[in-house]
């Protein structure tokens, strides 16, 4: 069995909310297909952030040049939960960093698309290795420090963390340092799906109240529905305004999302953190996506 991947490049420009439906569906299709082909991996979290990723990469929010991955003027995106990487690979392929056909090689011997992001320079468009939870946010803080404190340029650093990930104490070391060093060029997005491997975050080890925590750590906090494109667009606009207005605080977007969003098999089920769909399940889910497309 093999799936083919649509060879389509999405431009990076401001779009109307309705224009994202096709993009998020494309990302979701890629996630389902590549994981089913890999026979292993983590679909739930990746599917839940399709809207956040689509607007970030294709909504004119970040500056990048897919033909020049090491472009000095680029903004950066760090995906701290490395296991979400299938959605990032899909985005990078549709940015033009590498052919979409390469998505079929996910997790296979010799691939550039490792199960978790490999080191910088290994996969075009990947900024750093992540996979040991908690580390990506500190790397993002380091990048933001490099830009704001040392080089004094206007680059932005975006970082997405999980919510269970915030149980790692070093995340709060990162939060403290981002705040004390006034990193208003840092946008920390928390994917708040309230799911982790063992169950609901609030039951495994509660991280709540989240808004109050980040506020007390000195962040400007925006709460929104991460699966609502209109709200996501407005969230990034608010961060961009914070950055432009030099508010001297980092921004935290707490994005409520649903794991496995809109794929009925997986919708809001933490059991889909780390199980790939079978080929048959993927086909079923693709058909379901197709049907909602035609509504």
């Amino acid at each position: 069995m093999s799936f083919s991947f649509n060879d389509i490049i999405f431009s990076n420009e401001q779009r109307k909310p309705d224009d994202y439906a096709a993009i998020t569906k494309e990302l979701k299709r890629d996630i389902l297909k590549s994981l089913a082909l890999a026979g292993s991996g983590h679909p739930g979290g990746a599917l839940g952030i399709a809207e956040l990723m689509a607007v970030l990469h294709f909504g004119g929010v970040m500056r990048y040049d897919a033909t020049n991955p090491t472009w000095k003027e680029r903004d950066r995106f760090i995906l701290s939960p490395g296991h979400y990487v299938p959605v990032l690979y899909s985005c990078l392929a549709h940015c033009g960093y590498f052919p979409t056909s390469e998505l079929a090689t996910l997790r296979k011997l010799g691939t550039r698309l490792q199960g978790h992001p490999a080191g910088f320079g290994f996969t075009p468009g990947i900024e750093t290795t992540t996979g040991s939870l908690g580390q990506g946010v500190s790397i993002a803080v380091g990048m933001a420090m490099s830009d704001k404190l040392i080089d004094k340029n206007s680059h932005k650093v975006f970082c997405l963390s999980g919510d269970g990930e915030l149980q790692e104490g070093s995340c709060w070391e990162a939060a403290m340092s981002a705040s004390m060093h006034h990193l208003d060029n840092l946008c920390w997005i928390v994917d708040n799906n309230d799911c982790q491997i063992d169950g609901r975050v609030k039951e495994v080890m509660s991280i709540y109240p989240l808004k109050e925590k980040f506020e007390s750590f000195g962040f400007a906090v925006i709460e929104l529905n991460g699966n609502d494109v209109e709200q996501v667009i407005s969230g990034y606009e608010q961060f961009n305004a914070n950055h432009k207005n030099k508010i001297n605080k980092p921004t935290c977007i707490i994005a409520k999302t649903i794991m496995g969003n809109e794929i009925s098999l997986m919708h809001d089920k933490y059991q889909w953190h780390g199980n790939p769909p079978t080929i048959a399940q993927a086909e079923e889910a693709l058909k379901e996506l197709e049907d909602t497309n035609n509504e």
Binding site: T128, S138, G142, E173, A174, M176, S177
Partner: peptide, 22 residues
Amino acid sequence: ISVGIAEQNATTIAVGLALSGK
């Protein structure tokens, strides 16, 4: 850059700086 008694954060911040050419 001072980060206080936080060696894990210090190390990964160093990575962020290094990946930015420092």
